[in-house]
């Protein structure tokens, strides 16, 4: 369960608006490794997750998700890979308004053709782990921003993905909760061997990360331990 990006570039927009969102990016996340990507707004962090999560095709370069070359498979296969191998935590939290917290999680096995009822146990456990078990029956509009974010994280782990891509997973949480969530993501990565990428602005969670990389103008560079924080 690894993630490998080799010499990946992504150009967005066209003409005068052309932006090089990713510039020859190399990134290798080992199984069970959790890495952080930090960097200023607009530097290309979300773009990195988009290409790694098979939502956007890079202009050039190779991406392997759990050993599968995204460039070598068709759209349907990419959709399926997203469903089965990738756990996403979206920057804007993104829950379906008509579903309860529990159902947000049960939706994923349903998309995969698995009867949701058989997955109740796991969904309940995950909600428990993000501290949302007592609000499992609430819909998004009845939850706070931070609570929604925690449901979003639980959802990303629901299908036991090979790769977890989290875009600012703690932006709406207080420090204590942020640390808990970071620890949860790290534990999950270590325990299940999930390759995890966390995009963050939150220095307080960097302690839980195995590595920290910096994104600036589409260029990804490794931070030496000394430059962390």
């Amino acid at each position: 369960m690894t993630l490998d990006l080799t010499d990946v570039s992504l150009t967005l927009g066209d003409g005068a608006d052309e932006v090089r969102a990713l510039d020859h990016v190399d990134l290798h996340v080992a199984a069970g490794e959790v890495i952080a990507v930090v960097g200023p707004s607009g530097s290309g962090k979300s773009s990195l997750l988009a290409v790694a999560g098979a939502m956007l095709t890079p202009t050039s370069g190779t991406i392997l998700v759990d050993g599968v070359d995204l460039g070598a498979i068709d759209d349907a296969a990419r959709t399926r890979l997203r469903r089965e191998r990738v756990g996403f935590v979206f920057q804007g939290v993104n829950l379906l308004p008509s579903l309860t917290a529990l159902e947000q999680l049960l939706l994923l096995p349903h998309l995969d053709g698995v009867r949701p009822a058989t997955q109740r146990q796991r969904a309940a456990e995950l909600l428990e782990r993000v501290g949302m078990a007592h609000k499992a029956d609430r819909r998004p509009h009845e939850l706070s921003g931070g609570e929604r974010q925690r449901v979003g994280i639980a959802r990303a782990l629901m299908v036991r993905p090979a790769v977890v891509l989290a875009d600012e997973p703690t932006s709406a949480l207080d420090q204590a909760r942020s640390a808990e969530i970071a620890a949860l993501l790290a534990d999950q990565a270590h325990a299940d061997g999930v390759a995890t990428v966390v995009v963050t602005h939150d220095p307080s969670i960097l302690d839980h990360m195995d590595r920290v990389l910096t994104m600036a103008d589409g260029v990804l560079t490794e931070r030496t331990p000394a430059t962390i924080r």
């Binding site: 999560g53 959709t79 469903r83 089965e84 990738v86 996403f88 993104n94 379906l96």
Partner: peptide, 16 residues
């Protein structure tokens, strides 16, 4: 539309 985009991001196919 945003929900449809989300469902697609989560791996729902067009047919579904």
């Amino acid at each position: 539309k945003p929900e449809i985009g989300l469902l697609k991001a989560l791996g729902a196919s067009n047919a579904y």
